[in-house]
């Protein structure tokens, strides 16, 4: 029955994917200003007519046109014309400055339009493609990487994100270590816009040298985290090989095993709370584990 439910769920979702495939491209966030790039372009108006500072800009401030810019061609005093540009909606997208466009998730320290336009002779549309709705898109990391094939350890990132500060998104907060797996499994390609798979190994390398996943003295207090499921040890460590390399070799019993009622009753209670910990040491692979002596084969 439950299996049918799962299959039914997939079938229900199918039409959504079909609709998506037939649908339009993602909408540009609402800036509160009507997107009229296409109309201006059709009338032969160059981008720098409105974005006049862009060709010489090395930063991201002052790049968006103000109402004074519009007034060069339009009668902005005529209230009947307001709705020509102003949608009358609360902006949800890009704020006044292009520098703030990241909405607080990651800030660009600088971006040199000047070198892209003057030295590399790129056109605006090379990075800001039309979105099909009158607006232009902002480039995403994969687009940057079509030219800046940045390798880990090199300096390309700092060209936009500042030389001395890692461009860390705000989501990478105090508990990011516990959370990043979910974010990564939802859309791995999002991680790959900044990280290569090599970056994963910087932490998931197993030697705990630098940077460290666990505290240096973690060996002595790890039971606290293991028993409270704060981390799932089996994600990285093969049981029982890894555990027994210390517990068996150095004959160290987990502290709770020394309780007086451990064999008679307590071990069953704790096993129902965290059987994963039992398996970590007592799994004997193809052979019967210690538990089989009482619990049967």
């Amino acid at each position: 029955m439950k299996q049918l439910f799962a299959i039914g769920l997939c079938v229900l979702i199918l039409p959504i994917f079909v609709a998506l495939a037939l649908g339009d491209s993602p909408a540009t966030p609402n800036t509160g200003i009507r997107q009229v790039h296409d109309i201006h372009a059709e009338n032969g108006i160059e981008c720098e007519t409105c974005h006049e500072k862009v060709p010489d800009a090395t930063g991201l401030t002052g790049l968006l046109p103000t109402m004074d810019t519009c007034a060069n061609c339009h009668d902005v005093e005529d209230e009947d014309n307001c709705k020509m540009c102003h949608l009358g909606e609360e902006p949800t997208g890009y704020p006044k400055e292009a520098a703030d466009m990241s909405s607080g998730m990651t800030e660009l320290a600088h971006f040199p339009h000047q070198s892209h336009i003057q030295k590399q002779e790129l056109n605006c549309n090379d990075c800001h493609a039309p979105d099909g709705k009158g607006g232009q898109t902002f480039p995403q990391h994969p687009q940057c990487r079509s030219c800046h094939a940045t390798a880990a350890g090199f300096t390309d990132c700092s060209m936009c994100h500042g030389a001395n500060e890692a461009p860390v998104p705000a989501s990478h907060g105090p508990q990011w270590m516990s959370e990043h797996a979910l974010d990564a499994t939802f859309d791995q390609s999002k991680c790959e816009s900044c990280h290569t798979q090599t970056d994963c190994q910087d932490c998931h390398n197993g030697d705990n040298v630098r940077p460290r996943v666990h505290d240096l003295n973690f060996r002595f207090s790890h039971a606290l985290e293991a028993r409270s499921n704060e981390m799932l040890c089996q994600t990285c460590h093969e049981d029982p090989v890894f555990c027994s390399s210390c517990h068996a070799a150095e004959q160290v019993l987990p502290e709770n095993h020394s309780r007086a009622d451990w064999v008679t009753s307590r071990h069953g209670v704790e096993a129902s709370f965290n059987l994963e910990s039992c398996i970590a040491c007592h799994d004997a692979g193809e052979q019967d584990p210690t538990c089989a002596r009482c619990h049967g084969r």
Partner: peptide
């Protein structure tokens, strides 16, 4: 602990910026 990181590369940017 003593560690040495060595990185080398070429063409990290096709536009001549930040060549690694």
């Amino acid at each position: 602990l003593v560690g040495i990181d060595l990185a080398m590369g070429r063409g990290a940017s096709s536009t001549g910026l930040g060549t690694g």
